[in-house]
Computed example of a mutant assay.
Amino acid sequence: MKNILTEIVAHKHTEVAARKQQRSVAELEQVSWFKRTPLSLAHFLQDPGKTGIIAEFKRRSPSKGIINGDVTVQDVTMAYTRYGASGLSVLTDEKFFGGSSDDLQQARAVNNNTPILRKDFIIDEYQILEAKAIGADVILLIAECLTKEEVKHLAAFANNLGLEVLLEVHSGDQLDKVTDHIQLVGVNNRDLTTFKVDFNRSCELAAHIPDGKCKVAESGISNTDAIVTLKQAGFNGFLIGEFFMKQENPPRAFENFVTELADKLAK
């Protein structure tokens, strides 16, 4: 089977090289958002008064094709925030996920007080500078496609800019890449080499995540019972995108989900 992650990362190297020619680091550093103080996603996720949900805006994926091409990033992310999302995740990869840096900037413009994760395949310092310039608070590093030294270097670079880091793992051996500069550890239930989903992956790895790290479960979460189970396993955050985005009305779907979750947690 074709390794989708390898294909994405190969293209990302070419893409980043081209973007460096289009916009210099000095230009990025002059953008007004580059000077803003980022919010802490880890703090928001651990706030007992919030849902713990990182609600994602995602138009399409390599495995599913177009998920939702009829909604705007402003309407969807504003609704996510209004109904209690602890954080937002915005896809900025264009070729494989149909996203863009402009999507994140539009989300930031209408969501001043909610932390935003730049969801992309980060392999270079330049993308972290970009993340800061477009208004992100958190970057994603994927253990599957980075060495331990690369994770350490990129995480430290992000922290120096005031950004938090979510390290995404899919297997126990990848937890060896967690460093002091990682604030959040996400367990992706989706295998990025095949895009198959196994919801139990999060529960299996939960106890092995180092103490002091905010635990995030990613992918395959499609009902409130799953969040109750994941909370019992020690997770603080729950990244959900496809489930809401595939609905005809993502804002309404999110509102209903949060209401149902609150009822279950109150019992």
Rank of each mutant, 00 (worst) to 15 (best):
S171H: 15
K213I: 09
E125W: 01
A133E: 13
V197C: 12
I182A: 07
T224E: 12
R201S: 13
N188R: 10
D198H: 15
V165A: 02
H181R: 02
V187S: 02
H170C: 06
V169H: 02
T224I: 12
A143C: 04
K196L: 15
A143Q: 05
A156H: 09
S219Q: 12
G172L: 13
A226H: 15
A131F: 09
D173I: 05
F157W: 08
A136K: 09
E168W: 02
G212V: 11
I142D: 01
Q183Y: 00
S219W: 13
V169I: 08
L163K: 08
D137S: 06
N160R: 13
I142A: 02
K152W: 00
T147I: 07
V228D: 01
I139N: 06
L154S: 04
N200Q: 15
K196Q: 15
D198V: 15
D211Y: 05
L184K: 01
L146P: 11
N159S: 03
V197N: 14
R201Y: 01
T193P: 01
L230F: 07
Y126D: 10
N160E: 11
L205Q: 05
L129A: 12
K213S: 03
F195Q: 15
D173R: 14
L140D: 02
A155V: 10
H208F: 10
L184E: 00
E144V: 10
P210D: 11
N223C: 15
E218N: 09
V178M: 07
A226W: 14
G212M: 07
V169T: 07
D180R: 00
N189R: 14
Q174R: 13
D198Y: 15
S219I: 12
T179N: 02
V169N: 05
L161S: 03
A226M: 14
D198K: 15
K177M: 10
C203K: 13
E130H: 05
I209V: 10
N160G: 12
A136M: 07
V138N: 03
I128T: 07
L230P: 00
S222R: 10
L192M: 12
G172N: 15
L184H: 01
E149T: 08
L166R: 00
L205Y: 08
D225R: 10
T147R: 10
I134T: 07
V197Q: 14
D137T: 09
V197A: 09
K132D: 14
T193C: 10
A131I: 14
F157A: 10
C203S: 13
A143P: 13
I227G: 02
L175W: 04
Y126G: 06
I182T: 11
I227Q: 03
K152P: 05
R190M: 06
D176W: 00
D198R: 15
V187W: 06
V169F: 02
D180W: 00
F195Y: 15
G162W: 06
H181I: 05
F195D: 12
G220K: 13
N223Q: 14
L167F: 01
V228Q: 04
K132Q: 09
A226R: 10
S219Y: 09
A133D: 09
E218P: 05
